[in-house]
Design a protein around this nucleic acid. Structure first.
Length: 506
RNA sequence: GGCAGUGUAGCUCAGUUGGCUAGAGCAAGCGACUCAUAUUCGCUAGGUCCGGGGUUCGAAUCCCUGCACUGCCA
């Protein structure tokens, strides 16, 4: 039986406009999903939308529509973007779907019955204009820290989750599982946060109605994060013990942005503990993108619209840039000049040109019919070896979520290919009929190495792989087994590749 | 204010348990080739490894201190 692999992105809030940050997480998830599928895993790749809450309710009212109408309208923007980005998700969950509401209601009720959700009172300082609650300590000179206006003490009935009860259990789990929260810097932050003490968490609101009601007390709406986080199991069919649920839970990795780490590394695991369910294997918080050196913000109007990037540069260029430019987990800067630099240098000059010069020679020297290799020389063996090492290295880097390093490892082979041509100088061999067999061997090694490169690159740049393999005459369905040397058959038709990535003016 | 972390070539960064002349990619300069998307290949960086002090035969790597920046919490 195939091993199972479950990867998720957060569900995106329908009140947001899709930007580069959403695309980043989702592309990363897609690379994992495609890579694991390639390696023979049975993959469940989940993304979706978070559609409840006060902001959506309000935005809908302003727009003169129902919240669901708004969600229906906006969710299409996300789905259309994922389609364009080549995202291969197996499911798309919306928190307004019945399957989700059913599961949330169930787990809430279950925890309540076990005694870890109780009715209490929420007492805090409320700033009416900002519609925000503040704790005593957050106030600045007894005024709202945001607008500096006076606040009033407000008491509200609320359900609480007994999060404090799980402090030690959570801490023990984090310490026993060094990879549970990544990267390490974020893990440290969570450890110190938990050590400072967990308070019980308010998990219901009465100030709005757009959400899932608390079972048995409908004037309370379940807190949006409790609602949203549960998507990771409701998508699999929870509370039913469906085949998917049994196969895929616990999840291999939740990919998230660093801004929502606490919800995933503290709230969610303790909810699961209370419900008696297994914890995620890994929560990985990636960094933020700045844009041309500045923080992305609506007021600066510098929000990068992924659709425009795709229009301008192409899907695979965008996917490549996002994962290559910055180590996953660190912040990075998006700029057009950096993207064009990557495009010209890595994609056009190195990768694209290598295929183009290689296939051109195969056509020129062998009429496009791949010759069988003869005996391999040391330098051929070196290329074979490098290619094989790369496959091993990529596997390791992918498991570490080190996408950038995985791509660098692949580029080591691309670079080795370019050097190999220089060392073997096929144009010289071609002038001497006696060297025909040597030339055949060189051409074979050169093209075979690239076949493997492009198959492994299918996780990152699926559209490019299709083109590259077509010109290499490798048209069959492929899998991880095809990452082994020797897949290209003599006699295969090689056609000169079009420029995979035309250069652009910077 | 508390805790954690960062500061290495023009830029982005690697530098394991302290040890040969401190590395990579990109950018820049020079040279070579011509199969290729004017692409590729080779050579060239003499950088106070943030400042100061200390430990050591020896520190970018350990300790102390100062400065700058970042994150989490308050």
């Amino acid at each position: 039986m195939k091993p199972a692999y479950y990867v998720t992105t957060p569900i995106y809030y329908v009140n947001d406009v899709p930007h580069i940050g959403h695309a980043y997480t989702t592309v990363a998830g897609d690379v994992l999903a495609r890579y694991k599928r390639l390696m023979g895993h049975d993959v469940y790749f989940l993304t979706g939308s978070d559609e409840h809450g006060q902001k959506v309710e309000k935005a809908a009212t302003t727009a003169g529509e129902t919240p669901l109408e708004l969600a229906d309208r906006v969710v299409k923007r996300f789905q259309a973007l994922w389609e364009r980005l080549g995202i291969s998700n197996t499911d798309f969950i919306r928190t307004t779907q019945e399957r989700h509401k059913k599961g949330v209601t169930h787990i809430f009720k279950d925890i309540m019955e076990k005694g870890d959700i109780y009715l209490g009172e929420y007492e805090d300082w409320y700033c009416t204009p900002c519609e925000t609650f503040w704790t005593e300590t957050q106030l600045i000179e007894d005024r709202c820290p945001d607008c500096n206006r006076p606040v009033e003490k407000l008491k509200e009935e609320s359900y609480f989750f007994r999060m404090s009860k799980y402090q030690e259990q959570l801490l023990a789990h984090i310490e026993a599982n060094p990879d549970f929260i990544q990267p390490k810097s974020k893990r440290n932050e969570i450890i110190s946060f938990v050590k400072e003490g967990l308070r019980d968490l308010s998990v219901s609101r009465t100030t709005f109605t757009w959400g899932i009601p608390v079972p048995g007390n409908e004037k309370h709406i379940i807190y949006v994060w409790f609602d949203a986080l549960t998507n990771y199991i409701t998508a699999l069919g929870y509370p039913e013990a469906t085949a998917d649920y049994q196969r895929f839970w616990p999840v291999n990795v939740h990919l998230i942005g660093k801004d929502i780490l606490r919800f995933h590394a503290v709230y969610w695991p303790t909810f699961l503990m209370a419900a008696g369910l297994p914890l995620p294997e890994k929560v990985f918080a990636h960094g933020w993108w700045t844009v041309e050196g500045q923080k992305m913000s609506k007021s600066l109007q510098n929000v990068v619209e992924p659709n425009l990037l795709i229009d301008k540069y192409g899907v695979d260029v965008v996917r490549y840039f996002l994962l290559r430019e910055v180590p996953f987990g660190l912040d990075g800067d998006f700029s057009h000049s950096a993207l064009v630099q990557r495009l010209n240098s890595d994609l056009a000059n190195d990768l694209g040109n290598l295929l183009s010069r290689s296939t051109a020679m195969a056509v020129k020297y062998f009429d496009g019919v791949l010759p069988a290799p003869g005996k391999l020389s040391d330098c051929d063996q070196a290329l074979v070896g490098k290619t094989a090492e790369m496959v091993t290295a990529v596997d390791r880097f992918i498991d570490e979520m080190a996408f950038s390093k995985a791509l660098q490892a692949i580029w080591d082979v691309v670079s080795a290919g370019n050097k190999y041509i220089d060392e073997t100088a096929p144009w010289t061999l071609a002038k001497d009929p006696e060297q025909k067999e040597r030339l055949a061997t060189v051409m074979y090694c050169l093209l075979e190495s690239q076949r493997i490169v492009h198959i492994i690159l299918s996780a990152f740049m699926p559209a490019t792989t299709v083109k590259a393999l077509a010109s290499l005459g490798f048209q069959k369905e492929y899998s991880g087994k095809d990452l082994a040397w020797g897949g290209l058959q003599a006699g295969t038709t090689i056609t000169k590749a079009e420029a995979l990535f035309p250069r652009m003016e910077g």
